[in-house]
Design a protein around this nucleic acid. Sequence first.
DNA 1: CGATTTTGACCTGCGC
DNA 2: GCGCAGGTCAAAATCG
Length: 244
Amino acid sequence: MSTTNIVNHHSLFDQEQDHEIPMQMGFNIPFPPNMTLPPLDNCHHQSLKGISAITPSSLSPEAANFAETLLATAVQKTREFDDHLTSSFGGGGQLLSLNRSKVNSWAWGEVTGSLIGKRSSGGDDQHHHHHNQQLGVSAIKMKKMKGRRKVREPRFCFKTMSDVDVLDDGYKWRKYGQKVVKNTQHPRSYYRCTQDNCRVKKRVERLAEDPRMVITTYEGRHAHSPSNELEESQTQSELTNFFW
DNA sequence: CGATTTTGACCTGCGC
DNA sequence: GCGCAGGTCAAAATCG
Protein backbone atom coordinates (compact mmCIF):
# COMPACT_ATOMS: atom_id res chain seq x y z
CA MET A 1 0.00 0.00 0.00
CA SER A 2 1.25 3.40 -0.88
CA THR A 3 1.66 6.16 1.53
CA THR A 4 2.45 9.72 1.01
CA ASN A 5 3.50 12.45 3.24
CA ILE A 6 2.32 15.92 2.89
CA VAL A 7 4.17 18.42 4.74
CA ASN A 8 2.47 20.93 6.67
CA HIS A 9 4.48 23.79 7.88
CA HIS A 10 1.79 24.58 10.14
CA SER A 11 1.03 27.20 12.60
CA LEU A 12 3.43 27.55 15.27
CA PHE A 13 4.39 27.73 18.48
CA ASP A 14 6.02 29.78 20.88
CA GLN A 15 9.67 29.72 21.41
CA GLU A 16 9.80 29.88 25.12
CA GLN A 17 6.83 28.06 26.41
CA ASP A 18 5.33 25.40 24.28
CA HIS A 19 4.03 22.03 24.90
CA GLU A 20 3.16 19.61 22.26
CA ILE A 21 -0.40 18.61 21.83
CA PRO A 22 -1.27 15.70 19.62
CA MET A 23 -4.16 16.63 17.45
CA GLN A 24 -6.38 14.77 15.15
CA MET A 25 -7.39 16.18 11.88
CA GLY A 26 -8.60 13.96 9.18
CA PHE A 27 -9.99 14.36 5.74
CA ASN A 28 -10.12 12.38 2.61
CA ILE A 29 -9.22 13.49 -0.81
CA PRO A 30 -10.50 11.72 -3.88
CA PHE A 31 -7.76 9.99 -5.69
CA PRO A 32 -7.70 10.01 -9.48
CA PRO A 33 -7.69 6.62 -11.10
CA ASN A 34 -4.61 5.46 -12.89
CA MET A 35 -2.47 7.33 -10.53
CA THR A 36 -0.50 5.89 -7.73
CA LEU A 37 1.62 7.43 -5.13
CA PRO A 38 5.06 6.11 -4.56
CA PRO A 39 6.46 5.27 -1.17
CA LEU A 40 7.05 8.07 1.19
CA ASP A 41 9.84 10.13 -0.09
CA ASN A 42 11.65 12.77 1.79
CA CYS A 43 12.83 15.86 0.17
CA HIS A 44 16.37 16.64 1.06
CA HIS A 45 16.70 19.76 -0.90
CA GLN A 46 18.75 22.02 1.24
CA SER A 47 16.44 24.94 1.21
CA LEU A 48 13.63 22.68 2.27
CA LYS A 49 15.16 21.04 5.24
CA GLY A 50 12.78 19.11 7.36
CA ILE A 51 10.22 19.07 4.68
CA SER A 52 8.88 15.95 3.16
CA ALA A 53 7.20 15.96 -0.13
CA ILE A 54 4.47 14.27 -1.98
CA THR A 55 5.68 12.69 -5.10
CA PRO A 56 3.22 11.69 -7.74
CA SER A 57 4.74 8.93 -9.76
CA SER A 58 2.92 9.88 -12.86
CA LEU A 59 4.09 12.64 -15.10
CA SER A 60 0.67 13.31 -16.45
CA PRO A 61 -0.90 16.73 -16.20
CA GLU A 62 -3.66 15.07 -14.28
CA ALA A 63 -1.19 13.96 -11.71
CA ALA A 64 0.35 17.37 -11.50
CA ASN A 65 -3.02 18.97 -11.11
CA PHE A 66 -3.98 16.48 -8.55
CA ALA A 67 -0.89 17.14 -6.56
CA GLU A 68 -1.61 20.82 -6.54
CA THR A 69 -5.19 20.34 -5.65
CA LEU A 70 -4.30 17.94 -2.95
CA LEU A 71 -1.92 20.33 -1.39
CA ALA A 72 -4.25 23.27 -1.69
CA THR A 73 -6.95 21.24 -0.05
CA ALA A 74 -4.63 20.21 2.68
CA VAL A 75 -3.78 23.81 3.27
CA GLN A 76 -7.39 24.75 3.50
CA LYS A 77 -8.35 21.93 5.78
CA THR A 78 -5.44 22.61 7.99
CA ARG A 79 -6.33 26.22 8.23
CA GLU A 80 -9.90 25.49 9.07
CA PHE A 81 -8.66 23.22 11.74
CA ASP A 82 -6.39 25.88 13.01
CA ASP A 83 -9.17 28.41 13.04
CA HIS A 84 -11.22 26.04 15.07
CA LEU A 85 -8.37 25.61 17.45
CA THR A 86 -7.90 29.28 17.77
CA SER A 87 -11.47 29.93 18.69
CA SER A 88 -11.59 26.95 20.96
CA PHE A 89 -8.69 28.17 22.92
CA GLY A 90 -10.08 31.62 23.04
CA GLY A 91 -7.19 33.09 21.25
CA GLY A 92 -9.05 36.17 20.32
CA GLY A 93 -7.08 38.63 18.31
CA GLN A 94 -3.75 37.30 19.35
CA LEU A 95 -2.82 35.89 16.06
CA LEU A 96 -0.46 37.62 13.84
CA SER A 97 1.20 36.68 10.67
CA LEU A 98 4.86 36.76 10.13
CA ASN A 99 6.27 37.26 6.76
CA ARG A 100 9.75 36.71 7.86
CA SER A 101 10.92 34.44 10.55
CA LYS A 102 13.65 32.12 11.47
CA VAL A 103 12.55 28.93 9.92
CA ASN A 104 14.59 26.74 12.16
CA SER A 105 13.21 28.05 15.34
CA TRP A 106 9.74 27.01 14.46
CA ALA A 107 8.17 23.75 15.26
CA TRP A 108 6.59 22.28 12.24
CA GLY A 109 3.39 20.41 12.47
CA GLU A 110 3.03 17.28 10.48
CA VAL A 111 0.33 15.81 8.43
CA THR A 112 0.73 12.31 7.31
CA GLY A 113 -1.53 10.42 5.07
CA SER A 114 -1.99 6.97 3.79
CA LEU A 115 -3.67 5.61 0.79
CA ILE A 116 -6.79 3.77 1.57
CA GLY A 117 -8.49 1.69 -1.01
CA LYS A 118 -12.09 2.64 -1.09
CA ARG A 119 -14.81 2.61 -3.64
CA SER A 120 -16.59 5.84 -4.11
CA SER A 121 -20.09 5.38 -2.91
CA GLY A 122 -22.02 5.90 -6.13
CA GLY A 123 -24.22 8.90 -6.44
CA ASP A 124 -21.63 11.37 -7.51
CA ASP A 125 -21.42 10.64 -11.16
CA GLN A 126 -20.89 14.07 -12.51
CA HIS A 127 -17.28 13.10 -12.79
CA HIS A 128 -16.36 10.82 -15.59
CA HIS A 129 -13.66 9.64 -13.30
CA HIS A 130 -14.53 7.15 -10.71
CA HIS A 131 -12.52 8.00 -7.71
CA ASN A 132 -12.12 4.62 -6.26
CA GLN A 133 -9.28 5.55 -4.06
CA GLN A 134 -8.89 8.21 -1.55
CA LEU A 135 -6.00 9.71 0.16
CA GLY A 136 -6.72 9.93 3.80
CA VAL A 137 -4.87 12.57 5.64
CA SER A 138 -4.96 12.44 9.36
CA ALA A 139 -3.11 12.68 12.57
CA ILE A 140 -1.69 16.10 12.85
CA LYS A 141 0.66 17.02 15.56
CA MET A 142 1.29 20.55 16.42
CA LYS A 143 2.64 22.67 19.10
CA LYS A 144 0.57 25.17 20.83
CA MET A 145 1.96 28.03 22.68
CA LYS A 146 0.46 29.84 25.49
CA GLY A 147 0.44 33.50 25.96
CA ARG A 148 1.43 35.54 23.01
CA ARG A 149 0.95 33.53 19.92
CA LYS A 150 2.35 33.84 16.52
CA VAL A 151 1.08 31.93 13.64
CA ARG A 152 2.80 31.43 10.40
CA GLU A 153 0.79 30.95 7.32
CA PRO A 154 0.48 27.29 6.53
CA ARG A 155 3.05 26.11 4.10
CA PHE A 156 3.22 23.02 2.01
CA CYS A 157 5.65 21.85 -0.51
CA PHE A 158 5.82 18.90 -2.79
CA LYS A 159 7.70 17.87 -5.80
CA THR A 160 6.39 16.76 -9.11
CA MET A 161 8.06 15.30 -12.13
CA SER A 162 7.10 17.78 -14.76
CA ASP A 163 8.30 19.61 -17.83
CA VAL A 164 6.39 22.71 -16.94
CA ASP A 165 7.57 24.73 -14.00
CA VAL A 166 4.33 26.28 -12.98
CA LEU A 167 1.64 23.71 -12.50
CA ASP A 168 -1.86 24.90 -13.15
CA ASP A 169 -3.81 24.81 -9.95
CA GLY A 170 -6.71 26.94 -11.01
CA TYR A 171 -5.46 30.11 -9.46
CA LYS A 172 -3.93 33.06 -11.16
CA TRP A 173 -0.43 34.02 -10.15
CA ARG A 174 1.81 36.96 -10.81
CA LYS A 175 5.50 36.53 -10.66
CA TYR A 176 7.19 39.00 -8.39
CA GLY A 177 10.71 37.76 -8.23
CA GLN A 178 13.28 35.27 -9.27
CA LYS A 179 16.43 34.29 -7.51
CA VAL A 180 19.33 32.02 -8.15
CA VAL A 181 19.91 29.91 -5.13
CA LYS A 182 23.28 28.69 -4.10
CA ASN A 183 24.45 25.45 -5.61
CA THR A 184 21.70 25.20 -8.12
CA GLN A 185 21.57 25.90 -11.78
CA HIS A 186 17.92 26.65 -11.91
CA PRO A 187 16.50 29.83 -10.47
CA ARG A 188 13.68 29.91 -7.99
CA SER A 189 10.61 31.87 -8.94
CA TYR A 190 8.27 33.68 -6.60
CA TYR A 191 4.60 34.12 -7.32
CA ARG A 192 1.78 35.84 -5.58
CA CYS A 193 -1.92 35.22 -6.08
CA THR A 194 -3.33 38.02 -8.20
CA GLN A 195 -6.58 38.22 -6.31
CA ASP A 196 -6.95 41.38 -4.29
CA ASN A 197 -6.50 40.91 -0.61
CA CYS A 198 -5.15 37.45 -1.14
CA ARG A 199 -1.66 37.13 0.14
CA VAL A 200 -1.01 33.59 -0.89
CA LYS A 201 2.42 32.97 -2.26
CA LYS A 202 3.94 30.20 -4.21
CA ARG A 203 7.54 29.32 -4.88
CA VAL A 204 8.70 27.20 -7.75
CA GLU A 205 12.09 25.73 -8.37
CA ARG A 206 13.74 22.71 -9.82
CA LEU A 207 15.51 20.17 -7.72
CA ALA A 208 19.24 20.50 -8.21
CA GLU A 209 19.78 16.78 -7.91
CA ASP A 210 17.17 16.04 -10.48
CA PRO A 211 16.08 18.89 -12.75
CA ARG A 212 13.14 16.86 -13.89
CA MET A 213 11.54 17.47 -10.56
CA VAL A 214 9.71 20.65 -9.79
CA ILE A 215 9.32 21.73 -6.22
CA THR A 216 6.30 23.83 -5.49
CA THR A 217 5.81 25.48 -2.17
CA TYR A 218 2.62 27.18 -1.16
CA GLU A 219 2.36 29.63 1.65
CA GLY A 220 -0.93 30.85 2.96
CA ARG A 221 -4.47 30.05 2.14
CA HIS A 222 -6.70 31.51 -0.50
CA ALA A 223 -9.67 33.36 0.86
CA HIS A 224 -11.51 32.89 -2.38
CA SER A 225 -12.17 30.37 -5.10
CA PRO A 226 -10.04 29.93 -8.15
CA SER A 227 -10.70 32.97 -10.27
CA ASN A 228 -10.21 31.49 -13.66
CA GLU A 229 -12.59 28.61 -13.49
CA LEU A 230 -14.02 29.57 -16.81
CA GLU A 231 -10.77 28.95 -18.54
CA GLU A 232 -9.98 25.69 -16.90
CA SER A 233 -9.88 22.50 -18.78
CA GLN A 234 -12.67 20.12 -18.11
CA THR A 235 -10.59 17.81 -16.02
CA GLN A 236 -9.31 20.58 -13.85
CA SER A 237 -12.72 22.01 -13.51
CA GLU A 238 -14.11 18.76 -12.30
CA LEU A 239 -11.34 18.27 -9.85
CA THR A 240 -11.54 21.77 -8.57
CA ASN A 241 -15.26 21.84 -8.22
CA PHE A 242 -15.13 18.63 -6.41
CA PHE A 243 -12.79 19.99 -3.86
CA TRP A 244 -14.18 23.38 -3.32
C1' DC B 1 -2.80 50.27 -22.96
C1' DG B 2 -3.40 47.46 -18.88
C1' DA B 3 -1.33 43.29 -17.08
C1' DT B 4 2.63 40.65 -16.34
C1' DT B 5 7.55 39.65 -16.41
C1' DT B 6 12.23 40.91 -15.93
C1' DT B 7 15.95 42.16 -13.22
C1' DG B 8 18.98 44.76 -10.26
C1' DA B 9 18.52 47.12 -5.92
C1' DC B 10 17.13 46.83 -1.43
C1' DC B 11 16.03 44.57 2.98
C1' DT B 12 16.54 41.27 6.69
C1' DG B 13 18.11 37.28 9.22
C1' DC B 14 21.97 34.65 10.38
C1' DG B 15 26.68 33.07 11.05
C1' DC B 16 31.20 34.31 11.86
C1' DG C 1 29.71 44.67 12.55
C1' DC C 2 30.23 42.57 8.12
C1' DG C 3 29.07 39.75 4.41
C1' DC C 4 26.36 36.21 2.46
C1' DA C 5 22.01 34.23 1.04
C1' DG C 6 17.35 34.39 0.34
C1' DG C 7 13.10 37.11 -0.20
C1' DT C 8 10.78 41.31 -1.96
C1' DC C 9 10.27 45.70 -4.35
C1' DA C 10 9.63 48.33 -8.25
C1' DA C 11 10.90 50.58 -12.49
C1' DA C 12 11.52 49.36 -17.03
C1' DA C 13 10.58 46.15 -20.55
C1' DT C 14 7.57 43.07 -22.65
C1' DC C 15 3.30 40.82 -23.58
C1' DG C 16 -1.37 40.19 -25.40
